[in-house]
Nucleic acid binder design. Sequence first.
RNA 1: GGGCGUUUAGCUCAGCUGGGAGAGCGCCACCCUUACAAGGUGGAUGUCGGGGGUUCAAACCCCUCAACGCCCACCA
Length: 888
Amino acid sequence: MNETTQELTKVFSPAEIEKKWYPIWMENKSFKPKKGKKKETFTIIMPPPNVTGKLHMGHALDQTCQDVLIRHRRMSGYETLWVPGVDHAGISTQAVVEKKIYQEEKKTKHDLGREAFVKKIWEWKEQFGSEITHQLKKIGISCDWDYFTFTMDDVPNQSVRKAFVQLYNEGLIYQADYIVNWDPILQSAISDAEVEHKEVKGAYYFLKYKVKDSDETLEVATTRPETLFGDTAVAVNPADERFKHLIGKTAIIPLCEREVTIIGDEHVDIEKGTGCLKVTPGHDFNDFEIGKRHNLKILNILNKDGTLNENGMEFQGLTCAKARKKVVEKLTELNLLIKTEEVVHQVGHGQRSDEIVEPMVSKQWFLNVQDMAKVAVEAIESEKTKFFPKTWENTYFSWLREPKNWCISRQLWWGHQIPVYYCGDCKNTWANEDKPSSCPKCKSTSFEQDPDVLDTWFSSGLFPLNTLGWPNKEAMEEKRFKDFYPTATLVTGFDIIFFWVARMMMMCTKFTGKVPFDQIYIHGIVRDKQGRKMSKSLGNGIDPLELIEKYGADAMRFTLAAGSGYNRGLNLDPERIEGYRNFINKVWNAFRFIQPHLVHAQETLPSPNEFTVHDKWILSELNTVAKSVNESLYEYRFDDASSAIYQFVYEVFCSWYIELSKNIFNSENDNAKVIRASVLKYCFREILALLHPFIPYITEELWESLKKPNEPLLIDWTFPEFNDKLVYTREQESMNKFIEVITSVRNLRASVNLKPKDEINVEFFTDDAMFAEFLYSNRAFMKDLARISAGKIRNKSEAKPKKSVMAATSFCEIFVPLEGLINLQEQITRIEKEIAKTQKDYDIYDRKLQNEKFVNSAPAEVVAETKQKANEFKEKLVSLQESLANFQ
RNA sequence: GGGCGUUUAGCUCAGCUGGGAGAGCGCCACCCUUACAAGGUGGAUGUCGGGGGUUCAAACCCCUCAACGCCCACCA
C-alpha cells in the first residue's frame, strides 16, 4: 500500500505507531553516539532505577526530561550519549528474594547459606530484573542500550574495589566501634540518611533514682525507661544550682540496682525535663558522646533483632516496646515511677523497613568524608557544576557543610562485599583489590574476607565513572571515557540530593580530579491533583503504563514536559493529559489537511521573492518560536518550551496559516498553489522537528511521509534554529493588524447572533495607508475568514453608514450595515461598554503621562511607549464615541 | 528547634533584571463551515494570602503577620 495515498483516520492511534518506531530507531542505531556538526559531546548518566522497581510517575517524569534533552541535543549536532542502568538495590532486593524463597520453600536465607542465597538472588535478577527496563522502553527513551550497566556487573565491582582500597590505604576508611542506627528487621546498620523521623505517640516517664548514702532522690525523665539497664551514669548540668552538690556522688539505678556516678555535663539542658539525665551510651547518640567525654562504660542491652539481651534481667527476650510496658509496671509496683506525661515525639524509622531503628554500638566501617565534602562544596561555589534551579544548592550545602562520616558497611549478603581480609594466623588486616592468594605479611593462606557488604550508595556514587568503563583500561577505551566524562547534565529529583548527588560529586571528583557533571537539573516530584504524594495507602497513584495505553506515550510525555520547569511539585490532573492528547490529534489532522496538497510542493523552500506576506509572516513566527524553544531547552524550562510550540502550532499555524491556505488551494492559480504547498511543507517539517523531542513517535510517523528519500529519520535530523534570513518584521505587523480586524468582525457577528452561513457587507474606515493596501490585497482572505460577501475600504473622514453595528481598533473602524436586523439599544449598550473599557485603558496611560515625576524619572523608552499606547487608545476611543453619537 | 519553599481566574500553574495581570483545563453562547466535535467562532472570570514600607511606578524589592507543604535535627 502506498503511504502517501493511504486514507488517514480522523483520529490517530498511538499504540501502533509506538510499536513500529522503537525497533526501527534501535536497528538504525539512532541511540548511539554519532559525530554531529558541533564538536562537543553531551552525556547523561541515567539515575538507575532499582532492579526491584516498578515503573511509576517519578520515573516517567525523570525519563521524559532526559529524553527531551538528549533528543534535542542530538538533533542540535552534539555527539550524544545517554547511559542506562539498573541498581542492585541491596536491601530491597535481598528482602524481595528472601520473602519469595520463604513463601515457596519455607526456607530462610540462613537455611540456604550465603553462597546459595546470593546465587538465588542472581537467578531472580536474571528472570525478573529486566522488567523495569522493558517498562522504560515504552516511554520511548533513546538511550544507548549497549552501555547498559547493572551496578553489580564486573566493571562496577572492580570500580568499587579500586575505590575502596585507595580510600582505605589513604586512611579515609576506618573501622570503629561506634553508635549507629541499627535496623532490627534488616539486622544491619544503616546510614544517617536512611533514617526517617516520624511522629510517634509516647510518654515521658519520671523515674526515681536513689542517691547512695543520702536521703535525696533524683527525678529522671525519659521516654525509654527500658534502656535503664544500659545506664552507666546520671548527668546534670554543672551550673545547675539544684544538683551541683551531687556531682561526683553515686546514684542507684532502679531495678538493676547498679551504682553509677553522677556527672556534670554541659549537654544537659537545665530547662528541659527534670534537668537530670540518665546516660545510656550504648543506645543514645548524645549519651554516646557524653560517655566518650567522661570515659563511661558502654553497656549493650539489645540483641541484633532488637530484643533485650541478658543485661535486661527478667525482661530478656522482650522487644523494646514490650519491655517498656513491663518495666513501667514493675517500677509502678516498686513506687519508683513518679508520674507519666503523654507526648508526641519524633522517632527514627528505617527508610526501607519502616521499623523503629535502635541506636546501637557496633563495629562498622566508616568513610571519612570531611575533605571530600569540602571539595564537593567548592565545586558548586565556584560554579564548576551548576544547579538548575539554583535554590537546590542550599539543600546540597546543608548536607555537605557539616558532613558526618559515612557508615558504609551493611550486614547484608547482597551487594559488593568489603574487600578487606583478615589473616587467621598473624591477624594481619589488609584491603586488596583482587582476591588475594595469601597474607602479604606471613604468606599464610588461611584468611577470611570481611563478611559485610557496602552501602548501595557507595557503588551508585561511582556510577558516572564505572558506566564509562572506569577503572578498567580496556573498558574505558571501548566506552570512550575520555570523550564522555565529565558528563553534561544530571537529571534527578531533590529527594536524592544527599544520597546520590552529593556522593557522586565527592567520589567521582576524588578519583578523577574532575566533577562528574557540568549541570544538575532537579525536577519536581509528581503528586496527585490535590498535591498529595502518590501512595499505595491513599490509592491515588497513577500508573504510567495505563496512561500510555489510554492516551499514548507522546501525550504523557508532553504533559510531563509541560509541567516541568523550576517547580518542586507537579500535580498531575489526568484531564490535562487528555488536553495534550487532543493537541497531538490536532497535529495529526493538520497533516491530513496538508497531505493531499503536497503533490504541488517543491523540494525546497521557494526563493524569498516568491513569498506572499502570509509566507513571510509564518516563517518569521516559526523563527521566533525556534529561538525561544532552544533557549528554554538550554535552561531546562520544559514548560516554556512546550507551551511555546503548543501556542504556535495551534493558534498560529493551524488557526491562521492553514486557514489562509484554503483559499489558495481552492483557486485556479497553480503557481500560488506551488508556493503555498512548498511553504506549508517546509513549516510542517520544522514543526515536526520542534516537537520531536517531546512527542517522538507521532512526529517520526508523520516525518516518514514528508522526508525526501535520501534524508535520515527525524530522530537524526536537524533541530530548527533561529535564522536571521527569515525575519520579516513588517509582514508580522501587518498580519497582526489583519488578524485583529478579522477578530473584530467575528466579534460583531457574534454580537448580533449571525450564523456562519449569513454573509454580510462590511465597510472599513482607516487612515493607515499601508494597512488599507494590505487589506485590499488580502480581500479574498478577509471574505473567507470573516464570511463577508462584500466590503469597502474608505478614509476615516468619509461618511459612516447609518443603522449599522460597529467596532473599532486603534487604526480602523468597522461598520456592518444591518438594516432591520439589529436591536439599536443593544448596540448602543455594547458600544457604551466598549467605550468604558477603552476609557479605562486610556486612563491608565494618560494618568502616568500627567504625572510629571513619571515623565521626568522613567526611562525615555518607557515614556515613549506609554505615549504611543495612550494615542492608540485615544484613537479607538474617538472612533467609538463618534459612532455612538451617530446612533443617537 | 533550624532551614527551604508555596500562597496569582472555579482547578493546575506560568509570570525572566520592578513599567498596561497570562496559559491550559473547566464554564457560557452560537455553530457538524469541505484537516480535526479529541473540532470551530466569540465570551465571562482576578482588591496577584493580610498589613506596612521603598519607588514616578510593586504580583515582582524590603519588613511583618497568617495558612499550607517539604527537608534537616539527639527519642530527657
